[in-house]
Design a binder for these strands. Structure first.
Length: 470
RNA sequence: GACCCCAUCGUCUAGUCAGGUCAGGACGUCACCCUUUCAAGGUGAAAACACGGGUUCGAAUCCCGUUGGGGUCACCA
């Protein structure tokens, strides 16, 4: 049997971080078993299902590299099919029409709740003669669910979960306006799409029982279920807006590389021994449902950040430079010149180990691209007092005549100057740093010197010294 | 409230299914080393089997209970 999994989000305006993990697990499982990973957009609620909301889902998935097989299925295209299945059920006696008013239903729920019963609908129209139907009331179609016995879901993650059928009521399949409910649509679509494994959040676990009943009523094969624990916020409750960013695009905008997000998400609730850092290709070789935990995991931005820093360090300079150039240009307010681009690229190796996110990296690279004269920040300005300028002049004298403008030679020259003047290396290096970068924090100052080049370096030093001539 | 699920360092987790090394790793925290700043890197430290009963020579691991946390209870998805 070929494995077919699916991700079936409803459009909410963004790809939820938890949804992204669900999608990832589905894809990983399909890849592991050489199967297919399909995408279905559950857009039957017109209020939510704007084009922008649908696009946000696709964009989020693509950004993470979660490519699906085939064209996405839009549930809204399949309404007639859903209604037809309801009609089949009606014809076969597996479903019936119910004419209860909203008020009656509310009263039933109230009564059920007082009784402590799980069955919210009391079955009023289950066996009632349709001839007694009130005039002018459009009925809903309900499933004729079993009254006794129990329903079992053999879940690949949760294990065997059993519920008494008296906890399940006759759910609505078709609304009064003839549109299908979620419960019906999901089952029909999953069946028609030949889904073999339904991997989704465990907030759907109770739905699995109701859906099982529909599969049975239609005589369809029941797919394997795997209900993965939800991602919780730091306070232990289901991740929601009050916990901060929910959409993956927010993490993209904060500058987290997609590799880091995937790696982090893969490790939330799933593990392969002590492996922490791995590619999704590697994960696809390892992934199995039996290694998914049953307890919910809390979202930890600190760990995501450390993964982000790791992947940035590992990235090759070329692609990285291309990635952050637009960010730097944005901060600068102008496109980069060839010189700026070259410096950016050359400076990356020293910048990379200092960045947590791509946004950090772009910001830290800014000083390489800023035009003279630099405006030093407060701490840097303090380093450039008269005493600092004197030491800066000392440093300038040591390197100005260098034939070979490389980090190694600059370092040798400055060290020698420090020694002969009785200064510590740091007291020469810090004013130099302030002059060259406008900051007290930067990559190794000799490397900065080399990346900036002779003319720019000397120019920046002279700006700080207050000289006009280079 | 009813039904269902869950429980190892602050967090993610290995170990649980087939009971038996000082309960391992990672993130975070702290210390030290490296060092021209800040990072990165290296070394080390503190840090957990929720509780109570069983079963057993032996329990993080199996069973029961308690407590705690979570999810679901629509003509939303």
């Amino acid at each position: 049997m070929t494995v077919v999994t699916r991700f079936a989000p409803s459009p909410t305006g963004f790809l939820h971080i938890g949804g992204a993990r669900t999608a990832l697990f589905n894809q990983l499982y399909a890849q592991r078993y050489g199967g297919q990973f399909l995408l279905r957009i559950e857009d039957t609620d017109p209020a939510r299902s704007t084009d922008a909301a649908k696009r946000a889902i696709l964009d989020g998935l693509r950004w993470l590299g979660l490519e699906w097989d085939g064209a996405p299925v839009y549930q809204s295209d399949r309404l007639e099919r859903h209604a037809a299945v309801a009609q089949e059920l009606l014809d076969a006696g597996g479903a019936y029409r119910c004419y209860c008013s909203p008020d009656e239903l509310a009263a039933m729920r109230e009564a059920a709740r007082r009784r402590g019963s799980g069955r919210l609908y009391d079955g009023t129209w289950r066996d009632r003669n349709p001839a007694e139907a009130p005039e002018g009331v459009a009925p809903v179609v309900r499933l004729r669910a079993p009254l006794d016995g129990e329903t079992v879901v053999d879940d690949a993650v949760q294990g065997r979960v059993t519920v008494r059928n008296d906890q399940l009521d006759d759910m609505v399949l078709l609304r009064a306006d003839g549109t299908p409910t979620y419960m019906l649509s999901v089952v029909v679509d999953d069946h028609d799409m030949d889904i073999t494994h339904i991997v989704r959040g465990d907030d759907h676990l109770t739905n699995a029982f109701r859906q099982t009943l529909i599969y049975r009523a239609m005589g369809w094969d029941i797919p394997a279920f795997a209900h993965i624990p939800l991602i919780h916020g730091p306070d232990g409750a289901k991740l929601s807006k009050r916990h901060g960013a929910l959409g993956v695009e927010a993490y993209r905008d904060m500058g987290f590389p997609p590799e880091a997000v995937c790696n982090y998400l893969a490790r939330l609730g799933w593990s392969h021994g002590d492996d922490e850092i791995f590619s999704m290709a590697q994960a696809a070789d390892w992934f199995d449902l039996k290694d998914v935990g049953r307890s919910p995991a809390r979202f930890d931005p600190a760990k995501l950040t450390s993964l982000s820093a790791h992947y940035i360090r590992e990235m090759a300079d070329g692609p990285l430079a291309d990635m952050i150039e637009p960010l730097v240009a944005g901060l600068l307010g102008a496109p980069l010149s060839q010189t700026q681009r070259t410096r950016l690229r050359a400076g990356l190796s020293g910048l990379k180990p200092r960045a947590k996110t791509l946004a950090d990296l772009a910001e830290s690279a800014l000083f390489y691209c800023r035009p003279r004269p630099l405006a030093p920040d407060a701490k840097a300005a303090k380093l450039l007092d008269d005493a600092g300028k004197a030491r800066l002049a000392l440093g300038r004298a040591a390197i100005a005549g260098l034939d070979d403008w490389s980090a190694g030679h600059a370092e040798a020259a400055i060290r020698a100057a420090a020694e002969s003047s009785g200064e510590k290396l740091g007291s020469l290096a810090q004013p130099l740093r302030a002059a060259l970068t406008g900051s007290t924090v930067s990559p190794g100052i000799f490397e900065v010197l080399e990346v900036l080049g002779r003319a720019e370096s000397l120019g920046r030093i002279d700006d700080s010294l207050g000289r006009t001539a280079g």
